[in-house]
Design a protein around this nucleic acid. Structure first.
Lengths: 345, 345
DNA sequence: GCTCCTTGTGTAATCGATTGCAGTGAAGTT
DNA sequence: AACTTCACTGCAATCGATTACACAAGGAGC
């Protein structure tokens, strides 16, 4: 398919392939006259490097691989957009893979990316433990950064937000709005996000003296359906808490939907919070109070770490970096303080 | 990075690299004894083929590239999921790129994928005309299928739905619900989707005798914000139509949001329809009546066409296929007939 | 005028897997 | 017994770009 090769350019310019390569890659000394001839020939023939041949020879591909748990989760797609944006500045390309929340698929994607000689990998591991072996194995072969989620027992760089601090803000805000009891709806504790958020939730609830009934902790998955189902169970059980804290926005959207269906007023009867600040979080009825992750900063740090790791290569494998950025609380209408503030206008 | 090569396997098994290759690729005659030795050696060393070397030698990569206008549009991500699912069965991998609705970026992504020797490309072109050159050029080099959207003046396969038929269903449904006038909100007519849908809208409106005021056609982009802004303008202008037909669900979500803000009852004062049946379309308030595209079927046909094109290769370049699948109307609560039907329960 | 650099260029090896061609036995044919 | 056929297997070329090494020519320095 690659019709025009370096050999054809060299022939046309009347030089060797070595010289052509030197001109085009800008390395090595070349006389001005020859350089012009070569560039001209390349231009005329419409020459484009063959990245495959180059990748075989060098080991660089100017390419970064990214693996996310689910491409249908808007949080991850916006994270992907941020990463892509940052990479563009570096002249690198992104190859995206979807693990469909399955560690086995994830492992295949990782090894496939590694085999294709990407320069580095950014991964948000699907599972808090089962993703471990594949992630570690991949990290041993090339630069790897975990994003948002991380997997226990591995030794790689990580960039994300301080979930515990975020939950502290959420709980303080709910408490301020009058909440004295709270329920939690998240995914199973098989990934670090829910785990951390739940831990932060528990701790701050305790510190604030808010009650958390053991029956009011629901762990399923990150989906609207699950949020809806869990909320329905909560309502059916009869004993509604003052607030429902959700591990992500999808769940929270399901919860507010269920509340609408049951005729339960949000935030008057129950306050609801989400997490991630996906675009749709402001479109719900009511608009969700949620936690915003600084996606662009996260992406930037991740790419920076990757670049640093590439340079360091095998030389010094220092301790891995763990960068926790500071999230912000976005107050909207699903919590009381937010609704009050709005009402003042 | 690729530590163990075919040479090491051959050494360990005491045969030539040629034989190892023959065993591992299953081609050519090999004695049972040798085969066993080679497999054993490969196993013990943990050999994995280097896809780059293979791609350089052959021209196949067992890889398909896909380019979508926007990864943050849920319709495209679910289309990607469908495609990925189908490809998995064929043992192929998908590389996804986001064109960010920019024909220039799109062109770069296409040529990068082509250069990387993907076996085929699936693209939903960003622009109805400007995407043309890059798409055609790419299609001349390797199998390419356009999905959902298409670009004028190109000669490639296409798979999508019959937008005109879909709009006929939408309009009939609205008419049945009592609508006698309608507005249209879409993106600029720079992509085939809006173009076709608008054409279908116009034609059926005329046939049904529904009035369409020239000032009530709003063309912007595919986003919630645009839907909201256009709806606001429509309301401010004072003369509300019986129905607002949107070119996709994001726009429709913006419209229903604006209606809520303005205290306009949907569907009682104005009926609203979307298009694509993205997950969030059922979460709006009210849940959207929309058009469902058979994504899995679309993905299947696309992959099938790609495979066929690969086989045919350069031999016979027949006329390109244009496969328009039949969409279905999903009636929910944003239209009157839908609300009535629901109310019966 | 004769070394010693420097600059510019070409030759050929290399990355790893695949495959056309040729060679070696062994089995089958006449 | 001589000859063909066929199953195996290895050698070496190939894909396209990069680069270590060699070599040539020209200039500087003595």
């Amino acid at each position: 398919m690659q019709r025009v090769t370096i050999a054809q350019v060299s022939e046309r310019a009347g030089v060797s392939t070595a010289t052509v390569s030197r001109v085009l890659s800008g390395k090595g000394p070349v006389s001005a006259a020859v350089e012009r001839r070569v560039r001209r020939a390349a231009e005329e023939l419409g020459y484009q490097v063959n990245p495959i041949a180059r990748a075989l020879r060098n080991s660089r591909t100017d390419t970064v691989g990214m693996v996310v748990p689910s491409i249908s989760n808007p949080f991850f797609t916006s994270l992907v957009e941020s990463v892509e944006h940052v990479l563009e500045r570096e002249g690198k390309e992104l190859f995206l893979s979807d693990a469909r929340s399955d560690p086995a698929i994830e492992a295949r994607r990782l090894s496939s990316l590694a085999a294709r000689n990407v320069d580095g990998i950014i991964v948000s591991p699907s599972h808090g433990t089962e993703s471990g072996p594949a992630v570690q194995e991949t990290a041993d072969r090339l630069p790897l950064v975990q994003l948002d989620r991380f997997v226990g027992g591995t030794n790689t760089d990580w960039v994300g937000v301080d979930d515990v601090a975020a939950m502290r803000m959420v709980m303080d805000h709910l408490h301020e709005g009058g909440a004295r009891s709270a329920a939690f709806i998240g995914s199973l504790l098989t990934n670090s996000s829910t785990e951390q958020r739940f831990a932060g939730f528990r701790r701050r609830a305790e510190e604030l003296g808010m009650s958390v009934h053991p029956d009011q902790v629901f762990l399923g998955d990150y989906s609207v359906d699950w949020g809806e189902a869990a909320a329905a169970r909560l309502v059916d059980a009869g004993n509604l808490p003052d607030a429902i804290v959700c591990a992500d926005d999808l769940i929270a959207l399901g919860v507010t939907r269920a509340c609408r269906a049951y005729g339960i007023a949000v935030p008057d009867q129950v306050q609801v919070t989400g997490y991630d600040n996906i675009e749709f979080s402001r479109l719900g009825e009511p608009a969700l109070t949620t936690v915003d992750q600084p996606r662009d900063r996260i992406a930037e740090e991740a790419v920076r770490l990757l670049a640093a790791a590439s340079r360091a290569a095998d030389t010094d494998r220092g301790p891995s970096a763990r960068i926790a950025l500071v999230p912000t609380l976005v107050v909207r209408d699903s919590t009381r303080a937010g609704a009050a503030r709005r009402a003042q206008h």
